[in-house]
Every structure is written in structure tokens, then in C-alpha cells.
Design a binder for these strands. Structure first.
Length: 254
DNA sequence: CGTAATACG
């Protein structure tokens, strides 16, 4: 089965640029979206009810901000919105779907660049998420934790590591958190299959970064290592619809 | 610069 993760940066924007045709062509079994930037009353029926899919949403409280979604061919056994901590849950960053063989956690991690307060919020979010995922594992769940992490792990994961060592997204403390989740038994599936490939999943719109390939790999499928025997491939897909993020793909044995 | 509502990424 194919599990996609994609920061769409506005579901209404991609809806205008062929999102539904793309879903029809790719036929994801599960599609996780981040930054849908919409609220329930704004969501068109054609986006809520895609043929052949169940859909689940966690909206941010601020209009036009954050929000995550899961589209799924198979109905989830259960859905949880947020992680039970108000200051994080109000931003609509996490949605969790249980399936018979695994639990899928779809996350839009905070961006830490706008202020030191938002950086601290991001760091606090990291700890809360690790606790949340570890609790799922303690309950016996195999977990997939996908989404826009807003962190490049190592120098290979961004074009300009030197000039970004003091920027949120590539700070030592953020990179160490990725080290920590790996130590605790989560696997960066793309890097597992491609240990030496320099490929990115995001390019800033601001500085025409795409033309220079000044990108970052910040979109991941991590899995608990007890799932690795079922992982068949992990990929970063090509540019679609001129978005700043590319979709990333995890393929599991059925 | 792009998205969606005036800020945020």
C-alpha cells in the first residue's frame, strides 16, 4: 500500500491546480496532507468527499492557518485529533489514524523562525510528540509518523548547511532531536533506502530557491523499526503543481 | 514570493 505525505500549503490553492486529478492518477491508499489552511465551513464538498476515500480533518483555530488531513481508501479504526495538550491542539497540527496493522500519525511541525517564542514552542512540541508516539508504541502499536518536520537532519539534507547552522530548521538542538528519535527506535525511511542521495522536499518561494536547487529535505516518513520489515520503498516525488513542497511516499507490503 | 486574510512561512 502507498502512503503519501504532502504539505500542500493551502488545499484551495492545489485544488485550483489539479489536486483531484493528481489523486486520481496516483491512487494513494492513504494521503496525509499538512498546511491545508482551511476550516470546516470553507471546505468544498468535492474536497471533503473524494470518490473512493474516507476523509478526516483537524483544522487550526486561526483562519487560513495550519491544519492537517488524511484521505484513506480503507476506513480508519479510529481517529484522534491533536495530542491532548491545548496549546498545541488549537493549531490543528496532528491527526492520528489507527489501522489494523499500524497507527499513522500525520504532523505539521511548527516553524521556529518568526521569534524565540515560536522556536521554544517548536522545541516543546518535539518533546510532546515523542512522548505521544512512545505512548502509542507502549500500547503495542507499530507507528508511522509522517509529515512536514520543518527540520533538516544532516548536512546532506540541505543545499546550504553552513549558512543555516544558526537558523531554525537546522539548529543543533533541532538536529539532535532527530538523533534522539532515531536512538529511540524510529527510522528515517527515505535515508534508509538512499543513504547518500542529496534530494530535497522543499524550496523557499522567497529567493527563487527552486532555480538554484537551494532546497531542504524536511518532509519525512519515520516508522517504528518493528515496521521496517514491511517497508518496501520510500521516495521523494517530483514537483507537482508548482508547490513549494514535494509529496513523499512510503510503500508498505500489503 | 505564495497563500489566504494582515500574518506567516
Amino acid at each position: 500500500m502507498k502512503i503519501y505525505s504532502w504539505n500542500v500549503n493551502g488545499i484551495r490553492a492545489v485544488a485550483k491546480k489539479g489536486f483531484l486529478d493528481w489523486v486520481d492518477e496516483e491512487k494513494p491508499d492513504i494521503l496525509c496532507l499538512q498546511e491545508i489552511r482551511i476550516q470546516e465551513e470553507q471546505l468544498q464538498k468535492k474536497l471533503k468527499n473524494i470518490d473512493g476515500y474516507y476523509s478526516y480533518f483537524n483544522y487550526g483555530e486561526r483562519k487560513g492557518y495550519s491544519g492537517v488531513a488524511i484521505y484513506s481508501k480503507e476506513e480508519a479504526l479510529s481517529i484522534e485529533k491533536g495530542i491532548g495538550i491545548d496549546k498545541f491542539d488549537e493549531e490543528g497540527r496532528v491527526i492520528t489514524a489507527k489501522y489494523p496493522n499500524f497507527t499513522l500519525v500525520n504532523i505539521y511541525f511548527p516553524n521556529g523562525r518568526s521569534s524565540k517564542e515560536r522556536l521554544q514552542y517548536k522545541l516543546d512540541f518535539h518533546e510532546a510528540i515523542l512522548n505521544y508516539c512512545n505512548e502509542l508504541r507502549a500500547e503495542g502499536e507499530k507507528v508511522i509518523v509522517c509529515g512536514d518536520y520543518n527540520i533538516a537532519h544532516k548536512e546532506i539534507d540541505l543545499k546550504n548547511p553552513d549558512s543555516n547552522k544558526d537558523k531554525s530548521g537546522f539548529l543543533p538542538i533541532e538536529r539532535k532531536w532527530i538523533d534522539k528519535i532515531i536512538e529511540q527506535g524510529y527510522v528515517d525511511t527515505y535515508r534508509e533506502f538512499y543513504p547518500d542521495t542529496e534530494k530535497y522536499s522543499w524550496w523557499s518561494y522567497r529567493t527563487r530557491a527552486r532555480e538554484r536547487n537551494a532546497g531542504w529535505r524536511i518532509d519525512y516518513h519515520f516508522v517504528s523499526k518493528d515496521l521496517m520489515e514491511q517497508v518496501q520503498s520510500a521516495e521523494i516525488l517530483n514537483d507537482v503543481m508548482g508547490s513549494d513542497h514535494c509529496p513523499v511516499l512510503l510503500e508498505l507490503a500489503d
